[in-house]
Simulated scan of single mutants.
Amino acid sequence: MEVKIVSKKLIKPIVATPDSLRKYKISCMDEVNATMNVVTILYYPFNQFYTYKGIIKTLETSLSRILPRFYPFAGRYIKEHHTVDCNDAGAEFMEAEVDAYDLKQVITNLEPDYLNELLPLEIGAADEITDPVCAVKVTKFRCGGIALAASVSHRIVDACSMGIFVSAWAEEATLREGQSRTIHPFHPPRTFLARIFLLKILESGGPEKVRRLCARGSYLTPRPSLPLGRGLATFPACNQG
């Protein structure tokens, strides 16, 4: 399946991150995580009530509005300091298209190679200063359906917090005047593990032991209610040895 990149841009937070939050120190457990991104792909069939340009505008605008609440997502990870520089460099937003396939052909087969083509970044494209912490890719299919893929560094999120981010983004995209937000903003990690505990983990197996906890396979779940219609969400799992 050939996926053609149409455009690529950086979406910056609508409000600048204050200096007091500029340095985001990751937790000691996140330091030994595998170098990878947590990803999800949301599928939406063609919906005659929404235009493609309108969808893109809504996604870009709502992402810009949600980034101040998830401020490390617009920063860049500094590997040697185990810190995210929350410099508002922006989340990467890509548009792509597939001319030879319909959305139904992809979601009925779920071939790993097809899924990888829909991702904005490779699973292991993390930890470098040039790697965006958060990236999004919208792929339009021949039938008019779309795949919305999101990728966030595993240094910052796990599958659960990725779900919170996507749900908060969906809520922002569909928020009406007078409605209040129900999902809480992002908070730094608490000191829930002492360094001595981390040393015990390293002594008993090190990062490889942590990596083996990663699940393998793909998982189908109901997608959040973005203004795009009905669909499915796929979470490609990591494939670490």
Rank of each mutant, 00 (worst) to 15 (best):
K53M: 10
L103G: 01
E111L: 14
Q105R: 05
I78F: 03
M94N: 01
Y101W: 09
G54I: 08
L42R: 00
K53N: 13
Y52F: 15
A126R: 00
S62V: 10
G124E: 12
L121M: 14
Y43M: 13
E97K: 14
T58N: 08
V84S: 02
L63R: 07
R76V: 13
L67N: 03
D85A: 11
V98A: 09
E122H: 08
L59I: 15
Y43E: 03
G90H: 05
R69E: 08
P112Q: 07
F93H: 04
S62W: 06
T35E: 10
Y101C: 12
L110K: 11
M36P: 00
L119D: 01
H82F: 14
N87L: 12
F73C: 14
S64R: 04
G124T: 13
L119T: 06
S62Q: 04
N87T: 05
F73N: 04
I123D: 02
Y50Q: 10
G90W: 03
G124W: 03
Q48S: 13
M36N: 06
L119S: 04
K104P: 00
M36H: 08
V84Y: 06
I123N: 04
A34T: 10
I107E: 07
N47R: 11
F49L: 13
E111N: 11
I123M: 14
E111D: 13
R65Q: 15
N47F: 04
N87I: 15
V38G: 00
N47A: 12
V98Y: 02
L42S: 08
L119N: 07
D85P: 00
M36Q: 08
N87P: 01
P72C: 09
N116E: 13
D88L: 05
L121Q: 09
Y114K: 02
L119Q: 10
I55C: 03
P72W: 11
L121W: 06
N109I: 15
R76Q: 08
I78E: 07
R69C: 06
A91D: 01
F93G: 01
T40K: 07
K57Y: 01
K104R: 11
Y114Q: 12
F73Q: 04
E117G: 07
N116Y: 07
V98S: 03
F93W: 04
I41W: 04
Y52S: 02
L59H: 05
P68I: 14
D102Q: 08
H81S: 10
G54S: 06
K104Q: 12
N116G: 01
E122I: 08
C86Y: 08
R65M: 15
A89I: 05
D85F: 04
T58S: 05
T51I: 09
P112W: 07
G90Q: 11
Q105N: 07
G54Q: 05
T35I: 15
N87M: 09
V84H: 01
V106G: 02
K79N: 09
I55N: 01
Y52T: 08
Y114S: 10
K79F: 12
G54V: 07
Y50R: 11
F49M: 10
T35W: 01
G75L: 13
E97T: 15
H82V: 06
A96M: 09
L59S: 04
G124H: 08
T83C: 15
P45L: 11
N87W: 06
C86L: 14
I56K: 07
I78L: 15
N87D: 14
I123F: 06
L118N: 06
Y50D: 00
A74W: 03
G54A: 06
T61M: 11
K57V: 03
L103C: 03
Y71A: 12
I66R: 02
